[in-house]
Design a protein around this nucleic acid. Structure first.
Length: 166
DNA sequence: GCCAACGTTGGC
DNA sequence: GCCAACGTTGGC
């Protein structure tokens, strides 16, 4: 199982919206960037973990977790002329954009703000820091354990991680 | 396939 | 809402 980080604008779709969705599941549609698309289509698997990051809020932060519950399939909004995600270059035979379904897992009791992320040298190589515009990011196992230790200390099995503020 | 122009992202 | 950084487009 791998861990990813998905960015979303909470004014558009938030982790609370996912929690309140039917069956707590939604299609993660609207990705219109080729590298993010490639990761969705080719790398992400059912059962992978997803950290949810809220961008463009008053407090940009990693706010919780979801779970990938489908394989990649064509994003239906690309075929709908009335939808902002419409792409005239897409066809049913050759879809350009893909999505997966995610299910709500938990909201962190202590969300990790971008500001805090930048204060830990351990997080200097997070894609959130070095490639902030990519909407589907890789998280290593160690990075995940460090994030969990900060966001959900009661759930973390690795209390011995030597995280220290500079 | 270069690269200028243009569009989008997202922290602030 | 500003604007710097970055991704995409398309003429050549």
């Amino acid at each position: 199982m791998r861990t990813w980080l998905f960015k979303t604008e909470p004014r558009h779709f938030s982790l609370d919206d996912l929690r309140d969705a039917p069956d707590q599941i939604t299609g993660w549609d609207g990705v219109r960037n080729y590298q993010a698309r490639n990761r969705l289509r080719d790398e992400i698997q059912e059962g992978d973990r997803v950290l949810i990051y809220h961008s463009r809020g008053k407090r940009p932060a990693i706010v919780g977790e979801a779970l990938v519950v489908s394989r990649a399939y064509p994003d239906p909004t690309q075929f709908n002329p009335d939808h902002e995600g419409f792409d005239a270059r897409s066809s049913a035979n050759q879809p350009r954009w893909y999505q997966i379904d995610v299910r709500y897992v938990r909201s962190y009791t202590r969300p990790l703000t971008l500001n805090e992320v930048r204060q830990y040298p351990e997080f200097a190589d997070l894609e959130l820091v070095i490639r902030p515009r990519l909407s589907v990011q890789n998280i290593t196992d160690r990075q995940y354990q460090q994030i969990l230790a900060l966001c959900e200390p009661d759930l973390s099995v690795s209390g011995s991680l030597d995280l220290a503020l500079p």
